[in-house]
Design a protein around this nucleic acid. Sequence first.
RNA 1: GGGCUCUUAGCUCAGUUGGUUAGAGCGCAUCGUUGACAUCGAUGAGGUCACUGGUUCGAAUCCAGUAGAGCCCACCA
Length: 926
Amino acid sequence: MPDADLRPAPPVTPDADATAYDPKQVEAGWYAFWDAHGFFRADADSDAPPHVIVMPPPNVTGRLHMGHALQDAVQDALTRIRRMQGYNALWLPGMDHAGIATQNVVERRLREQGIERKEIGREAFIEHVWTYVEEFGGIIFQQKRRLGDSCDWSRERFTLDEEYNRVVQDIFVRLYDEGLIYRGNYLVNWDPDNMTALSDEEVDNVERDGQMWWIRYPYSDGSGHVTIATTRPETMLGDTAIAVHPDDERYTDLIGKTVTLPLLGREIPIVADEHADPAFGAGALKVTPAHDKNDFEIGKRHGLEVLTIMNPDATINEHGGPYEGLDRFEARKRIVADLDAQGLLDRVEPYKNTVPISSRSKAVIEPLISRQWFVKMKPLADPALAAVRAGEVTFYPERWQNEYFRWLENIRDWTISRQLWWGHRIPVWYYTDEHGERDESRDFVVSVEQPEPGMVQDEDVLDTWFSSWLWPFATLGWPDETADLKAFYPGTVLVSGYDILFFWIARMIMAGIHFTGEVPYRDVYITGMIKDAQGRWMSKSLGNGIDPLEMADEYGADAVRFSLNVLCTPGQDIKLEPSKFEMGRNFANKIWNAFNVFGRFMEPGPEGRLRDYRRSRSFDELELVERWILTRLNETIKTVDEAVGRYRLNEAALAIYDLFWRDYCDWFLELIKPPFGEAMDEDKIALAVEVYEQMVKLLHPFMPFITEEMWHRLRPRAEGDACIVAAWPTWKDSEVTMDKKDFRLRERGSAAIQSFSLIQEITTSIRSIRSSYNVPPSRGISVVLSIPSEEWNVVDPIGNPDSLERMLENHASYFEQLARVDDLDVVREGQKPKASATAVIPLRTATASIEMFVPLAGMIDLDEERTRLRKAIDEKEAFFVGVERKLQNRQFVTRAPEDVVARERQKAADAKAELQKLRANLEDLG
RNA sequence: GGGCUCUUAGCUCAGUUGGUUAGAGCGCAUCGUUGACAUCGAUGAGGUCACUGGUUCGAAUCCAGUAGAGCCCACCA
């Protein structure tokens, strides 16, 4: 166990000449600190409600890419929020052995050393893979630590560790015993590069510019020929029939005749089959049952011979006559040339067709008949469909559930055997003959253990996904009734991209229900995929990838995480470029610097520790801006909680960003920081600390490092006290008064919000005038606020007991600090001083407005002022006309809800009053 | 051939059940640097919410269609 506090102690007194924000420095030690304190560990015996996320296991050979960073930013934010909220939060990490991918990586490496896999044999090769895995396997987890991922490393799993292997084998046996796994000779997707079968999901259909060859097949009786069209002329070597549509008049009398297969001279029949489309090509179809799915079916219907003409490496086999040994594409060239030479090539046309490609090797898939293991999917899919239909699993965004339904409804059996070495061996055993060879005449035995001495195990391994689909429960000790399984299954939410919805997410739901009787998680949160600035997938070949670690080095891990969370609209792809991380970095910088506003006035406490600043005043004793910021904080906590509940982390992150920057820094700090050389009142420090601390907690799930750092700079902390386990802020309903539709029209808004909003508007208005007249910042100004006398006792925007007049007068210092107003005069129905700039500020709570005069003797340019006022009038008038039009519509007045109509009336009256004053002021200018 | 998504400020994107004078970041313009931050502050310019119809008192938001971009699925040789 490392030293509990690996973190250098934070400065006792924050440095007055504080250093600039340096993410590298801030992010250096906290991970070890958290880890050493065991904050990441979930407790299987806890009474707290669980919150469980299983990490989509990255490939064991993988390196961190932006997709990981995005999903981790989301998963870790969720985990940290729930942990702070008191949940027993588990984020379970692990790695995937990634069969083909890993085997290829190691094979390539060995080849560089001059070692061929086939030469050294299976056992030696597997040993090499394990060596490689041990050497490089954990790298991605080191990278994830750099991002701050708070996973429970004590529960880390690998899809090929010993216990996991046992589960996979058990599952195979179980499914076999249930009749859901079977072996058979079928046409499968064959990857000639890797020389293995693949599932349908591992095949991509790519549209390519190809060619259509029109070939003449002479009738055996010499009476002419039939022309067929094909995109794969080499498969003609395996043709065992020609098919025509039974109703196709052109060919009806040919049915039953035979043609002579060009080049090979075999005689093959012409059969009638509905599948032949008279409208396509020549209407006649060559039938190659061993190399085409449809032809396979036709062959079955007509009892045709199934003639495989290719070897597993896609070279032509002994059935190819003179073409034996040639690669399929070389054979194609030769065959076309030979046909042409014999006058049997009718024509060649350019043709756009879809070609099946191995998603792994990118090799063109060859449909090939081979003996493989399959899982019968329908019995698994039906309950999985029903469960989601019944709402046991909710997709975010919802539309992905339709994709899920569509796939499951049309599901086909799953080819699970792979002709690879790296993976879970298939638990099937064969008897051997006297030479030690498989005795195919005897039945095989399905069993985890070797049933009898001398029996040999199936050479094949299982599809990687056959182990990953067990991830949510196999990682928790299933099938044993472990404490972990009881505590953490089913999980809470799965966070993943839509690219593996079928591969993994849907299959996990099937497996969860089938084997445990429960769905593996209640929610599925689908993220978008990371694209480059042009919207293309990031890939090694394009070289357009952005390395998250480089970004973390340049901008900070906090910045990367925050930006990713802001950019992540559920289900929407993200066009990413490095500059996007500036937002996060600038924000972190802001967080850092904001602390210094009050931090530099904080004094040391006893024993050289930090002093603990605590507020001594009640809410009602606070000054306006303090009450205001607490109210805004309260509103924001609510917004955040609601957004998180809907997995809208982008909204949550932006809400805090806004609060911190726009409210706390731009207004609150500006008002409470002391003038010039004066010290800061300790009560004010206490309040600043209090709000900052709450915001730091809200931000922690998005920016764990800087918030942990600031957490320890804010107050003296006891051993074991840390932001990562601090109690999540709570909001009080009584203080939430936000009208989410309109910030400025909060009719029920709290006194603090209403009053301070008015001060903000007046301030902005003064600044605007200063700006248009280029009043130098150093120059103080006078401002006259003219309040309507008729509303004197009605308007009471701050609640009792203050009047509007007193409220404004009492906060003259605010205007001084914010807009350099030396002299504030609040009057009733005051006269406009000579040479004043004017503005009208509506009172949002009553049909009245405040008129503002800014005397600027010698600075007022009448033309300028006229232009300003005209512009204000034009804007207001356009608005007024729009509102009036609505109000004059009788339908609107009678049918719209009362409060909506009332609001419009209020708007119209406000606008009218303002217009009146603006016009009067304009006239005044002559 | 089916299905889905997107089209909102110069750029990248937010905008929950239809009612805000449609927002943010970046960029742009003007002004500002003797102490929180120029990775900053103040002020401002900039949008017929792709188009056409419909529903509604009211549509960026719901419905239908059109155009463009992209994705997924599908056995048409």
